[in-house]
């Protein structure tokens, strides 16, 4: 029982929290813009690689590295919105233009990263207080990392909830998500809100990538995995629902750890895809979502 707790359940919390954070970063973009960012996993990946450069190799203090990584993530996502998403979205909000243009950004970031960092995975040392090596905590041999990441994820979810309810910009974002024209009629600058969604989504994605780096290693190969898990968390939780995404992310983490323990690592994606397909067919709105996403 103890080994289940320490080897399966607690790691699942930390890893699941990471997936939940990526899912939330998808939501931050999806809610105002109505688009799914196919390049999001690549921005997560960028966070890990930048952490490698700033924190591991250049020895920046962790907070400085964090701020720099998040700023770059925000800038990349903002550039993506301005150059790739908005022109396609303005031409045809229901077309596949933005699917293709975010795929283009996916390709561009991926290959730029390969040119810059190469394809060899590299180790990133643990952040202070988030050690990935096991310590004795309350009599259990576990890594503090998993608890730390979970706490960070919960804090971010709560902060975003308060932001959406208590701040004008947050309310405006929720308004744009529901009815763009009606929001504009109340003085909301829709374009700005969409840009802000990308800025926040990019920053959070990069933050998650940096958080994940000590666990996953810094490598160009993690991008697609994070897109996979993050989307699954967001879709299972109900697109746009942050609490749902975090909960679903934790469930995914557990699913992954269970598959690793009782079956084989190579089948994790298969298990998750089947679970996702099954749930979407029964409940297209996700586990916690309200409105059924309409066919467009």
């Amino acid at each position: 029982m103890n080994s289940f707790l320490t080897d399966v359940f607690i790691p699942a919390l930390g890893i699941g929290a990471l997936y939940g954070l990526v899912g939330i970063s998808f939501n931050l973009i999806f809610a105002p813009a109505g688009t799914f960012n196919f390049a999001q996993g690549q921005i997560v990946m960028l966070g890990g690689l930048l952490a490698l450069s700033f924190y591991q190799q250049n020895g920046w203090p962790v907070l400085l590295a964090l701020v720099a990584v998040m700023a770059i993530g925000a800038a990349v996502a903002l550039a993506e919105e301005r150059i790739a998403v908005w022109p396609a979205l303005r031409r045809d909000p229901h077309g596949i233009g933005w699917v293709l243009s975010t795929l283009a950004v996916f390709t561009i970031i991926q290959n730029l990263a390969i040119l810059q960092w190469g394809t060899t995975p590299q180790n990133v040392k643990s952040f202070p207080a988030l050690s990935v090596s096991r310590h004795d905590v309350f009599g259990l041999q576990v890594a503090p990392y998993h608890f730390g990441v979970l706490l960070i994820a919960i804090a971010i979810t709560v902060a975003l909830y308060l932001f959406a309810r208590r701040s004008a910009i947050g309310r405006a974002t929720a308004a744009v998500a529901q009815d763009r024209d009606a929001a504009a009629l109340r003085g909301v600058n829709v374009r700005l809100v969409i840009s802000l969604g990308f800025v926040m989504g990019g920053a959070l994605a990069c933050l998650t990538g940096m958080l994940a780096a000590p666990l996953t290693l810094a490598t160009v190969n993690v991008g697609l995995t994070f897109t996979f898990r993050g989307f699954t968390a967001a879709a299972l939780g109900g697109m746009g629902d942050n609490t749902g995404a975090l909960t679903a992310g934790l469930a995914l983490g557990l699913m992954e750890q269970l598959t690793l323990r009782y079956w084989q690592g190579g089948y994790v994606n298969l298990v998750i895809l089947l679970a996702l397909l099954g749930l979407l067919l029964v409940r297209p709105e996700g586990l916690f979502g309200q409105a059924v996403p309409r066919r467009v």
Binding site: V99, F231, L273, L280
Partner: peptide, 24 residues
């Protein structure tokens, strides 16, 4: 089956995931 009840971009993501799974 995704196309039955969800919009096209869901289909796009799922096909992307299919590539990962087939590769696995």
């Amino acid at each position: 089956l995704i196309l039955l009840r969800l919009s096209g971009w869901y289909f796009s993501v799922i096909t992307l995931l299919l590539v990962v799974v087939v590769n696995d």
